[in-house]
Nucleic acid binder design. Structure first.
Length: 324
DNA sequence: AAGGCACCCAACCGCAGCCGA
DNA sequence: CTCGGCTGCGGTTGGGTGCCT
């Protein structure tokens, strides 16, 4: 049995609001308030609108002190920081930006800001209006993010992740949008994951073993538990320590969350990783919103935890699906 | 000049959670 | 404790607009 509609759709006006309707709604609310009941408000205000439509119009457009127009750099920074850390919880993000609505911020993010961010992360892609995806099977070259030199897809057949001993490594995967791969950026290292059939896999057929671990190109091994760790972390909410395991896929930033660890140093292969010691730390100057602030936000909003957005997780360990 | 395409953003939809009866 | 009404939220849609070919 379906849910009862919130209103009779045949008897309410839909679509864009006229200036007269705006005026009626604004006048009514300014005189009487919302009365805590949006359902009955349109009738009282003499509007042939659904209560939800009235509420949305008021909140997003008519209420006082709404700010329209360009977002400032500071607002950009706050949005980016919060999105990376808490995901697409627009109402929380909007609460940090006086005068901005969640709808505004959501639209701004989806249409402009994530592209802007992508452009900053991938300056060479500035000219691309839209990433071509999926790529043609013959395109076996991609542009290395750091060196900007063409690299063969052969190199992508093995993957590398931070050691299982150091689950809190800053871990910044980015979607290299012009080819069929995901890059995991963990400076000075970059790990590249091929995408097959719209599927992002930890490891490829050649590098995975039956126990679920993967042999890594840099002499490390990613264990099944670690993949599980990454797989399960999405329901965990904040760990209280480092939450800067950020990634971007197809322009959508997500954040890996894991258990806290103490300070570590990685000296394997002479490569220095940057591990966190409980301090808020980011790799991208855009993303330096205070962790304590965000934690406070989360706790004050019910601490629902959060999920990696835009990835549809497969039940199978270490495998992620996402749509295009 | 015109058609196609991509972008932008206001508005809609449906679900989840809250709260009172 | 349960149920139903309502609100709030996030994802999605679609019309308007501007750019490109």
């Amino acid at each position: 049995m379906g849910r009862a509609p919130c209103c009779d759709k045949t008897s309410v006006k839909r679509g864009p609001w006229s200036p007269e309707e705006d005026s009626k709604l604004k006048d009514y609310i300014e005189k009487h308030g919302t009365g805590g009941n949006w359902i009955s408000l349109p009738h009282k205000a003499g509007l042939k609108r659904c209560g939800k439509s009235c509420r949305l119009r008021w909140l997003n457009y008519l209420r006082p002190n709404i700010k329209h127009g360009d977002f400032s750099d500071e607002e950009d920074r706050i949005i980016c920081s919060l999105y990376v850390n808490i995901g697409s919880r627009w109402s929380i993000i909007a609460a940090q930006l006086p005068g901005r609505t969640d709808n505004d911020i959501k639209n701004y993010w989806n249409t402009k800001l994530k592209k802007k961010l992508m452009a900053m992360q991938f300056p060479t892609l500035h000219h691309q209006r839209k990433p071509s995806f999926p790529p043609s099977p013959s395109s076996h070259q991609f542009l290395d993010y750091f060196t900007h030199t063409p690299t063969s897809l052969i190199d992508l057949q093995t993957i590398s992740l931070p050691s299982n001993n150091y689950p809190n490594t800053s871990f910044n995967p980015f979607y290299q949008n012009q080819e069929s791969m995901i890059s995991v950026v963990n400076p000075p290292m970059q790990y590249n994951y091929p995408i097959k059939d719209n599927m992002f896999m930890f490891g490829s057929e050649g590098s995975s073993s039956s126990d679920g671990s993967c042999t890594l190109s840099h002499g490390k091994e990613i264990k099944q538990e670690e993949i599980v760790y990454h797989h399960n972390m999405n329901s965990g909410g904040f760990d209280g320590y480092n939450n800067n395991n950020n990634f971007m896929i197809n322009g959508n930033i997500g954040s890996f969350v894991g258990e806290s660890v103490n300070q570590h140093e990685e000296k394997s292969s002479g490569v220095g990783y940057s591990y966190n010691n409980g301090q808020s730390q980011t790799l991208n100057p855009l993303l330096d919103y205070g962790l304590e602030d965000i934690k406070q936000l989360i706790s004050s909003s019910g601490n629902k935890g959060f999920h990696v957005d835009d990835i549809h997780k497969n039940e199978e360990i270490g495998m992620y699906y996402f749509d295009y």
